[in-house]
């Protein structure tokens, strides 16, 4: 790191700060500005609207379910990919990354095809009176789909760099799989896990494309917060749209701050015993 800086360096820093301001900060300021444009009472009315609250609850539910399932999957798959060598390992790794390469809209389409009228499953589901598509289950499924690589992605490099010897040491001392995981592995990866959870949560609560395809946009039933924003916006109810958006901004900023705190903790942890 250079201590003494010349004009060129300051110019680059200023340019970066300017881009940051225009590209990232301004949109955030605008959301808050528009949300409060017609006063605090209109704002409060917009966010306490029953449809908004229902959308918020659905968003939270989908996020919690997606994060919980993906945490389990992330731990299992990262363990599998880093503790063992077997044929097809690279293939499993590639499959886990696949959702990153697929447009959310296309992901949504997968589920439409799987559960829709053209699917062989459709008569069975109708027989059993199970509504998947254009209902809550599809919203949750789509959310899980778009977020499932996040935790594995965070865990694999950390577990790879730690190697297997601590787990092997535990094995020579007679520890079972669960004991090894709980006492040896988990403490080592907790920050990476938390980091992955935060990233997955951020993506889950904001998912739009995939959910938009499978939800059917039924107000009060299958609307998540982002979808609710779209409806309000398309009805030219801008203030309400931005008011609801401000909720998501707050959630995003909180998650971002948490993310940075976690990163900081993890870095600090590397220098100390804990």
């Amino acid at each position: 790191m250079r201590k003494e800086k010349d004009i060129g360096s300051w110019l680059l820093i200023a340019l970066a700060a300017l881009f940051l301001l225009i590209l990232l900060v301004l949109p955030l300021v605008l959301v808050v500005h528009e949300a409060l444009a017609r006063g605090i009472r209109v704002y409060l009315a917009a966010i306490s609207d029953p449809f908004a609250i229902k959308a918020l609850l659905l968003t939270l539910m989908a996020t919690v379910i997606a994060v919980a399932l993906n945490t389990l999957f992330g731990l299992a798959s990262a363990w599998l990919l880093t503790k063992y060598d077997f044929h097809g390992k690279a293939l499993i790794g590639a499959l886990i990354d696949l959702p990153f390469a697929i447009s959310p809209v296309v992901a949504g389409l997968f589920f439409v095809v799987l559960f829709g009228r053209m699917s062989p499953l459709f008569p069975l589901l109708r027989e059993a009176h199970v509504q998947v598509l254009f209902a809550v289950p599809a919203v949750v499924l789509a959310t899980v789909f778009v977020t499932f690589p996040f935790i594995t992605r965070e865990l694999v490099p950390v577990m790879e760099s730690r190697g297997r010897s601590e787990e092997e040491a535990a094995a020579t001392l007679g520890a079972s799989g669960w004991q090894t995981f709980w006492h040896v592995t988990l403490p080592n990866i907790r920050w990476a896990l938390l980091y992955g959870v935060i990233l997955a949560a951020a993506r889950a609560m904001g998912e739009f494309g995939a959910v938009s395809v499978v939800s059917g946009h039924i107000r009060g039933r299958t609307n998540t917060l982002p979808l609710h924003i779209e409806i309000l916006y398309n009805e030219y109810n801008f203030t309400a749209a931005f008011a609801v958006a401000s909720l998501l901004v707050v959630m995003a900023v909180v998650l971002l701050a948490a993310r940075n705190a976690v990163e900081w903790q993890a870095k600090r942890g590397m220098h100390h015993g804990d």
């Binding site: 010897s165 601590e166 040491a169 006492h183 403490p187 080592n188 015993g273 804990d274």
Partner: peptide, 9 residues
């Protein structure tokens, strides 16, 4: 172990 594999935490 060669790298000791001590439990760091």
């Amino acid at each position: 172990f060669q790298d000791y594999a001590l439990f760091r935490h």
